[in-house]
Design a protein around this nucleic acid. Structure first.
Lengths: 194, 194
DNA sequence: CGCAACTTGGAGCGGACGCTCAAAGTTTGG
DNA sequence: CCAAACTTTGAGCGTCCGCTCCAAGTTGCG
C-alpha cells in the first residue's frame, strides 16, 4: 500500500549505485549526478525515495560499518590479536576504499557534529570490544585500564591506517605487531619531571 | 622595484586575516570572502598578491607547521617524553585550533595529493626526531626498529589526538602516558598463527 | 607637475552542486 | 476500462565559491 514494489526496486538500485560510486571513486566523487547517472534514474526519482543525498550515502556507509564488524554474536571468543588482524585486513584488503572513506569521515567529523556522532558511536563499540578481549586475556585487568588501553591501541591503529593509505608501501601489519597488547604495569598518571 | 611597500603591507594584512580566520573559525570557514572581508580588501587586491586562495592558506599553514616543531637546533637533547609532551601541549594548549586543522589536513591528504605531499614531509621529519630520541635512550636500538617504533608512537598520537578533538573530555596526556617508549623485545615480523 | 608603475574594489562570470516541481507516464484495484 | 495512487523525468532554481577584469585611484620618480 504505502509504496509500490517498483519504487522499492529503484531504491535498491540507487543504493547499489551509491555503494559502487563510493567504492570505486570515493566520497568526494559521490555527487548526486554520479549516483543517479549510475543508477539510471533522474534526480526527481532519487528525491522521491530519499530525504537527501546524505541519507543515501549514510545508509550505505552504515551497512558497510556493521558489515566490517566481525560477528557481534561471537562475543566472547575473539582475542586482541584477532581484532587487530581484522582491522589490518579491513585497511589492506579489498575493503581498502571503504577504510579510506572511514578515515576521511573521521577527519570530517572533527568539524561536523552530524558526522561525528555515528563515528563516535562505532568507536565506542570497538573500544568495548577490545577492552573485553584484553580482560579475557588478563582477568586481573580492571575496566578503566582496559578501556584506556583499548583507546591507545585503537588510536594507534587509526593513525597507522592513515599512514598506510597515504604511503602505499607502509607495512601496517608489521607496525601493528609492535603495538602493546596490554597496558604497562606502572605509569598510571601523567608524570612529567618536576 | 618589483613591488611597492604598500602592496607588501596589504599582503601582510591578508596573511594575518587568513591566520585569524583559520584560528578562530577553522579551515572550512576560510573562504575568500571571509579572508578579504577580515583584511578589509577587495578580491582583486587579493589576487594581485596571491596566486590563489590556497596559496595564502598554505603560506599560513606552513608557518604554523614549522612553528610547532620545537627548535630544530636543539637536536640532541630532547627525550621521547619531551617530544610526546610537546605533542600533547600542541593538541590541548592554545594551539588546539591549529592542531585540529592539522588533523583535518591529514584527512584531506587521503585523497588530495597536493595536500598529502607536505603532510608526508612534515611527518617524516617528526619520525626522524622521535627515532633519534629513542636511540639516544637506548644506543642498542637499530635504525629500522627505531623508525618503526617511531611510526607506531606517532600513529598512536595522531589517532589519540583525533579522539581528543572529538571528545572534549578525553584525557590525551593519560593516554599518551600509556604508550610504549621503546619497541618490545621480540615480534620483529608479522607472525600470524598458521 | 606629469607620467608610468603599481594598487584597489567589487560587479559579475562560470561552474559545481543539491534540490524542486509540474507534467507525463505507469501500475493497481475495483 | 477507469480513476486513483504512485513513479519518473530533467530542465532549471538557488546558492556558494573561486576567480577575472578593468576603471578608478594612489604612489614614486625625474
Amino acid at each position: 500500500m504505502a509504496r509500490y514494489r517498483v519504487g522499492m526496486e529503484t531504491r535498491a538500485r540507487i543504493l547499489e549505485a551509491t555503494r559502487d560510486v563510493l567504492g570505486e571513486q570515493g566520497l568526494e566523487s559521490a555527487t548526486l549526478k554520479a549516483i543517479t547517472d549510475r543508477a539510471g534514474v533522474g534526480a526527481g526519482s532519487f528525491y522521491n525515495l530519499f530525504e537527501s543525498k546524505e541519507a543515501a550515502v549514510w545508509e550505505v556507509l552504515a551497512e558497510a560499518i556493521t558489515a566490517v564488524d566481525p560477528d557481534p554474536d561471537g562475543h566472547g571468543t575473539e582475542t586482541v590479536d584477532d581484532l587487530i588482524a581484522a582491522f589490518v585486513a579491513f585497511v589492506t584488503g579489498e575493503t581498502a576504499t571503504l577504510a579510506r572513506i572511514h578515515l576521511q569521515l573521521a577527519g570530517i567529523a572533527l568539524t561536523e557534529p552530524e558526522v561525528a556522532a555515528p563515528i563516535a558511536r562505532s568507536h565506542a563499540r570497538r573500544v568495548e570490544r577490545f577492552a573485553a578481549a584484553m580482560q579475557r586475556d588478563d582477568p586481573d585487568l580492571d575496566d578503566a585500564s582496559a578501556a584506556g588501553h583499548a583507546e591507545v591501541v585503537l588510536g594507534a591503529l587509526t593513525g597507522l591506517a592513515m599512514r598506510t593509505v597515504m604511503a602505499h608501501d607502509f607495512d601496517l601489519a608489521a607496525a601493528a605487531a609492535g603495538l602493546p597488547r596490554h597496558p604497562r604495569a606502572a605509569a598510571p598518571a601523567v608524570g612529567q619531571s618536576s
